[in-house]
C-alpha cells in the first residue's frame, strides 16, 4: 500500500461527490450537461488512474480487465439515465436498453417490406428442419438481412482479393508491368468506388440484383489490395532476396520461399483495411438500392423514423465487422506462424 496515494484518493473521492452536488444545485447538470459530463469524466478518470496504482501486482491483470469492461458499461448507463430523464433527446439518442430491445425485435418480428428479419425468422428453424432438413434451415438464414450483407461483402472481398494479390505480385516483381499500370491504378484508386456504382449497374443484365453490388465491393477491394500487395513486395528487404539468391533460390523457389512469405504480413494488414472499406461500400450500396441487407434496414428505419432500430442496425454492422475481422485474424494465425506470438497482444 502506498499511503500517500491512498490519502490522495480519500480526499479526491469526497471532493468529486461534493463537486457534483454543487453542480446539481447550481442547475448546471440540467443547463450545461455536456460541460458537466466532460468535467466528471476527466476527474473520474484521474481517480480510477490513481486507484489502479494501489492495486497489488497480483490483481493487476484482473483489475485492468475490470476497468476495460466497467467503463463502457458506466458510459452506457449514463447515456441510459440521461435519455430516460430527457436530458438528451431520446429521438436521436434512444436509451441503450431500447436499442437492445429493438435489436431483439428486428430478430424476432418480420419487417413489412422484406418480410424477413435480421437472421431470417429463426423461430421457424426447428419446423423447417423437420420438413426440409438442413437445406431448409439454410434457406431461412439466407433470406435474412445479415446473411444478405455478409454474403455480398464476403463474395465481393474474395472476388476482388484473389486477382488483386496476383496482379500486385506481378507489379511488385516486374518493373515494366509496374510502370505500365501504376498511373492508371493510382488514378482509379482515389476514385470513391461508390461513384461508379451506377455504371456498374448498367453493365449487368440484372442491374437491381446482387451482381452489381458484389462487383462494386470487389472493385474497391481489388484496387486497394493490388496497390497494397505491390507495396508489400517492393518493401521486402533486399537482403532477403540476396540471401535467397546466395542459397540457390531462383524463380518459383524464390517466389514461394522468400517473396511470398516476406510480403504476407503486410498483405494481411492491407486486408484488414480493405475489409473495413468493403463494409463501408456495401452499406452505402444498400442505402442506395436494395430490397434487403443491413444497410437497407438502417435506411428504411430512417425513413420511418425509428431511431432505436437504426441504432440496432448499426450494432449489427459492428458485429458483422467484428466477426469478419476475427475470421481474418484466424486466417492470419494459420498463415503466419512466425507472427503468432504477437497477433493477439
Amino acid at each position: 500500500m502506498n499511503p500517500e496515494k491512498s490519502i490522495k484518493l480519500s480526499v479526491q473521492i469526497p471532493l468529486f461527490l461534493l463537486l457534483n452536488l454543487v453542480l446539481y444545485f447550481l442547475d448546471l447538470w440540467t443547463n450545461q450537461v455536456l460541460m458537466c459530463l466532460v468535467i466528471d469524466v476527466i476527474i473520474f478518470g484521474k481517480i480510477v488512474n490513481d486507484a489502479m496504482k494501489l492495486v497489488p501486482v497480483r490483481y493487476k491483470k484482473s483489475s485492468e480487465r475490470f476497468v476495460t469492461l466497467l467503463f463502457p458499461i458506466l458510459l452506457l448507463s449514463i447515456w441510459e439515465i440521461f435519455a430516460s430523464t430527457g436530458k438528451i433527446n431520446p429521438t436521436w439518442f434512444p436509451e441503450p436498453t431500447k436499442i437492445l430491445a429493438s435489436l431483439w425485435e428486428l430478430i424476432t418480428v418480420p419487417e413489412k417490406f422484406s418480410e424477413t428479419t435480421l437472421l431470417g425468422r429463426p423461430w421457424m428453424i426447428l419446423e423447417r428442419y423437420q420438413e426440409q432438413g438442413l437445406e431448409g434451415v439454410w434457406k431461412l438464414i439466407e433470406e435474412g438481412h445479415v446473411w444478405a450483407t455478409l454474403y455480398r461483402v464476403v463474395m465481393g472481398f474474395v472476388i476482388g482479393l484473389v486477382p488483386a494479390v496476383f496482379c500486385g505480385f506481378l507489379m511488385g516483381m516486374n518493373k515494366t508491368i509496374r510502370l505500365m499500370f501504376d498511373s492508371i491504378l493510382s488514378a482509379i484508386y482515389v476514385l470513391p468506388k461508390i461513384a461508379i456504382f451506377p455504371i456498374v449497374m448498367l453493365v449487368f443484365a440484372d442491374p437491381f440484383g446482387d451482381a452489381p453490388r458484389i462487383a462494386v465491393v470487389a472493385l474497391s477491394v481489388f484496387f486497394m489490395m493490388t496497390i497494397h500487395t505491390m507495396g508489400a513486395v517492393q518493401n521486402i528487404e533486399g537482403i532477403y532476396i540476396l540471401a535467397g539468391h546466395n542459397y540457390g533460390a531462383h524463380g518459383l523457389k524464390l517466389f514461394f520461399k522468400v517473396i511470398l512469405p516476406g510480403s504476407l504480413p503486410s498483405i494481411f494488414s492491407g486486408m484488414r483495411v480493405a475489409l473495413g472499406m468493403a463494409l463501408i461500400v456495401i452499406i452505402a450500396v444498400e442505402f442506395l438500392r436494395a430490397e434487403k441487407g443491413v444497410g437497407y434496414l438502417i435506411y428504411y428505419n430512417w425513413e420511418i423514423l425509428a431511431p432505436e432500430k437504426m441504432y440496432a442496425g448499426l450494432i449489427t454492422v459492428m458485429l458483422i465487422g467484428i466477426l469478419t475481422t476475427l475470421v481474418l485474424k484466424l486466417l492470419q494465425y494459420l498463415a503466419l506462424p512466425w507472427k503468432r506470438h504477437s497477433l493477439f497482444k
Binding site: E237, L242, A243, N246, G248, P261, G262, W338
Partner: peptide, 18 residues
C-alpha cells in the same frame, strides 16, 4: 558443392522460418 555462401552483416536469416 555450392561455390560460396555468405554470412551477411545484417544476418538476413528469414523471420518466417524457424
Amino acid at each position: 558443392q555450392p561455390i560460396n555462401n555468405v554470412v551477411f552483416q545484417e544476418y538476413a536469416i528469414f523471420p518466417w522460418r524457424t
